[in-house]
Design a protein around this nucleic acid. Sequence first.
DNA 1: ACCCAGGGTCGTC
DNA 2: GACGACCCTGGG
Length: 288
Amino acid sequence: MKEQKYIIKDSNSFELKDIFECGQCFRWNEQDDGSYIGVFGENVLNVRKINNEIIFTGICKENIKTTVEEYFDLNRNYENIKNKLSNIDENMKKSIEYGKGIRILNQDLWETIISFIISANNNIPRIKGIIERLSKKYGKEINWKGNKYYTFPTAKQLKDVTVQEYRELGLGFRDIRLYETTHMILDKKINLEEMQKNPDTIQVREQLLSLSGVGPKVADCILLFSTLKRFEVFPIDVWVRRVMNDLYIHNQDETKVNKKEIEKIANEKFGDLAGLAQQYLFYWRREA
DNA sequence: ACCCAGGGTCGTC
DNA sequence: GACGACCCTGGG
């Protein structure tokens, strides 16, 4: 495939670091020149920002403009969303100032499911390492500018992988979960195409929870970060628990904070934008 | 060397 | 509904 290029002038809400390091994705890596390279679908892209221009170059399966607009959620007005959230309170305002360039990517549903199963009780460097090894071993190679990149393996490509092989890749106790979920999806016990079309968030969440290795937190991440795109969910992990306790609850022992209480506050304060609010708070608390 | 924690989930009680 | 166990790795 041939290299393509696409430029956006006058970008708003588009900072590379904010988008790629806010915890939603695991396959984008910073380069020496400050640009980022990532693989998604059968695309390998370099993204850089110069002044107010965003420049995309790389290998795209389809048209690069269409691909980029979809993946980077370019048709959504983040300025409006940020204004609404900023008006809620000073905490939101501060966290949004910090993560002003965040956009929520439209990541492939299957890849997001597997990636966040791997994320359970794990740290980001190790999660990234596992996903790279998985892609290198079972994905498809794409060559660009003398470098090799690997697509995230499809369910079909993982069909014959054994639990032991996962363990050897360093997945740890998540090996069996990956195996079981892959086969539930291959056997259409859970139909991802149907799920993608289902407007009933409660129902979709139930289906996700039936997958091995998918609990409440992972299910919410999948709902928020994949093409399912549900902004009303509020994934609660250690960092979100921490920041919500610091800002609104003030319990001496954050680990004792009730999840229901966090959900209640999130819902009352942020409503149908809870997922976005979560992401600004998470990024701010973890990085700043 | 040792301990701890990391974008939690699962089985058991 | 609470509790411990779970694989592995980097950092203190």
